[in-house]
Structures are given as structure tokens and as C-alpha cells.
Nucleic acid binder design. Structure first.
Lengths: 113, 113
DNA sequence: CCGCATCCAGCTAGATACTG
DNA sequence: CAGTATCTAGCTGGATGCGG
């Protein structure tokens, strides 16, 4: 049982809201599955994302403890992002959604927001 | 392992996108935890939602097979919404997120989108 | 290379009013 | 009761250009 009053903010609800932000899942999954990457490489992995949004999402994920940011103060600078242990556990939990998602996807009707 | 190229659309990603729509989770959880309800009652449960959005979200969830719509063609009309088996399985899968969400929530820093 | 500042267009959620 | 129609304001994301 999910112990959560829908009218109130609960951790699961908030977490879902966070993950639901634009480009958040693609970033999360890229870091989880394809491993750490520097800013530019990550931008190339996530086709279509703008610098602005990538920066913003990464900052948010970092603030929430899902992403590590490692900065080499060289010239030019090198900044590497990677998944934290917390993010790995999160992604493992998301696997539980896979079965339902697959079955749903087999016969869903498009148009989703 | 989540077998999903972040650059491509995969079922889990799409499902998350769907759930991420405004008011979607509150509606889903209300139907799952508090049971079936008629339109007006549901609107009262989900504090702050507008008729327009509630209708739209319910229509979408119905189209995707997560919600059942039962209409009594009386006067005045009575329409009852309830969770489908698929939605129940979805919510059970979401429970796996609970542990991570709780731990995260214990020390997250606000500001999420 | 890794961003940030700025500007702008488009969507969308809310408010409001109305109907079978 | 259970929606639908319309109008609008505000946010937000894309594009662009610049800077340490």
C-alpha cells in the first residue's frame, strides 16, 4: 500500500514530479546506463537538448543528490557528471515499472502529457 | 538493467512522461487508494483541480487503459470512475520507489521541476 | 570547453460562464 | 451533475550571443 494522501505532498509524489521535469529521465538514464560523461559528451548523447536545460537539470539533480559533479579546473575546464549511489538505487526501483510499461505500451493509443 | 536508449522513446520513459502530466498522479493515487468516485467527488478529493483538467486527465487515463468510466444515463447523469487492473499493477510497481523516495525526501533541498 | 544572460514565441493551466 | 467553451496571463523552453 502506498501510504500517501493524494492531496498532500508525499515523497513518492514529489520524486515523480522531479523525475517528470523535461529531459530529466533521459539524463538520468544516460548517466545510469552509459556511465559518466563530460558536459559536451552528455549534450551529444541527449539529442536535442539545449545547453541551458542540460545545465539546469544537472544542477537540480546534483542538488538533490542524484548526480555527482566533478570539476577539473584546467584550461579549458573539464566537468564530469556521474550517477550517485542514490540514483543507481532509484533506477533499479524504476525497473519494477518496466513490466507494466511494456504491457501498456503494447496497446496504448499515443497522445500523452 | 533498464534496456532503454535514453535518446529513444521506450515504454518506461513514455509511461513516466504520461504520469508526469499535471494532476495525473494525484488522480491515480486517489482512485487507487480511496477507491472509485463520481466526477464531483473526485474533484473534491483532488483539492484545487479544475473541471477542465480533471476531465482531460481522466479522458487520457481512460484512453490508456488505466481508468474505467461508468456512465449512468439518468437525469442528472452519474459518471463513476475507477482504477483498472492495469492501474493497480502500476501503483504496486510504484511502491518500489517508496524506499528511495523516503530516503531522498529526508534530506532533499526543495525546488524541483 | 562549459556554461550564463537575454530575448522571445508558444503552450497551457486557471478563471469564468454556460448547457443537456 | 458532469462536463464544454472561451479568453487570457504567465511560465518555460528554444535560440542566440557572449565570457572565464
Amino acid at each position: 500500500m502506498i501510504r500517501c494522501n493524494p492531496q498532500l505532498e508525499c515523497p513518492t509524489n514529489l520524486l515523480l514530479a522531479l523525475l517528470s521535469g523535461p529531459w530529466t529521465m533521459p539524463i538520468v538514464w544516460s548517466l545510469f546506463e552509459e556511465g559518466p560523461a563530460r558536459f559536451g559528451a552528455l549534450k551529444r548523447r541527449i539529442t536535442g537538448i539545449s545547453s541551458r536545460l542540460l545545465t539546469e537539470r544537472l544542477r537540480m539533480l546534483e542538488a538533490q543528490g542524484f548526480v555527482d559533479r566533478h570539476e577539473e579546473k584546467t584550461i579549458p575546464p573539464q566537468v564530469t557528471y556521474s550517477a550517485t549511489e542514490r540514483l543507481r538505487r532509484l533506477c533499479q526501483a524504476l525497473e519494477a515499472l518496466g513490466a507494466v510499461a511494456d504491457e501498456w505500451h503494447a496497446n496504448y493509443l499515443l497522445q500523452h502529457t
